[in-house]
């Protein structure tokens, strides 16, 4: 049955689901032990990218913010220096992807997501160089950036599949009264 109620409810339900998933993924990832703290797949970003594509910048911003706050809360990192890493990384990635979307309409999920992942990593390195290790941290980039390119590509495919599963037709925040059934 197509949903016939207030389309804002549908948006809220979906965006809420996205936030919950993104936060959970981020928290779960941060709890799995890793050989290096920067080595993460960053699947939460797939949901941020999907939200950006489905609902535009406002949707992406909502999911990104929810992901950072809730995800860090669940993982117990909200009040810790680790929070700075996810905050800076997530927003850098969000802005980078939004910018690329605006400038390059023909760019696909993989490219957007890879750009986002690299921005995320660069932000993380910048934060680490300020609060943790000093300039020495940039030598880590040898390992961090290629890993980001790889994980960015994977999350790009994940975002593409997510949008496909969501129907793919809701391209903007629905305005009141608009028929979003497509």
């Amino acid at each position: 049955m197509p949903y016939r109620g207030d389309p804002r409810n549908l948006f809220l339900a979906r965006a809420g689901l996205f936030v919950a998933l993104a936060a959970t993924l981020q928290a779960v990832e941060s709890l799995i032990p890793s050989p290096a703290p920067w080595l993460r797949l960053g699947l939460g970003n797939a949901l941020v990218l999907a939200a950006l594509i489905l609902w535009g910048f406002r949707g992406g911003f909502l999911v990104a913010t929810g992901k950072v706050l809730l995800g860090s809360l669940i993982a117990g990192r909200l009040i810790s220096h680790l929070f700075l890493f996810s905050l800076s990384g997530t927003y850098s990635s969000l802005f980078m992807m939004a910018l690329a979307m605006a400038l390059l309409p023909r760019m696909g999920y993989v490219g957007l997501s890879t750009l986002g992942a690299v921005a995320h990593s660069l932000a993380g390195l910048a934060v680490a160089s300020v609060i943790l290790m000093g300039p020495a941290v940039w030598s880590l980039a040898v390992a961090v950036l290629p890993a980001a390119v790889l994980s960015g590509a994977v999350t790009g495919v994940a975002a593409w599949y997510l949008v496909k599963l969501s129907g793919g037709r809701v391209k903007a925040l629905p305005v009141e009264g608009e028929d979003i059934r497509g």
Partner: peptide
Amino acid sequence: MRPLFTVIDAAVVAGLIVLSI
């Protein structure tokens, strides 16, 4: 529909790999 992967993506990914090195 936004595509999954295009020439632009390939160029960006390649560029980022070069950058990351």
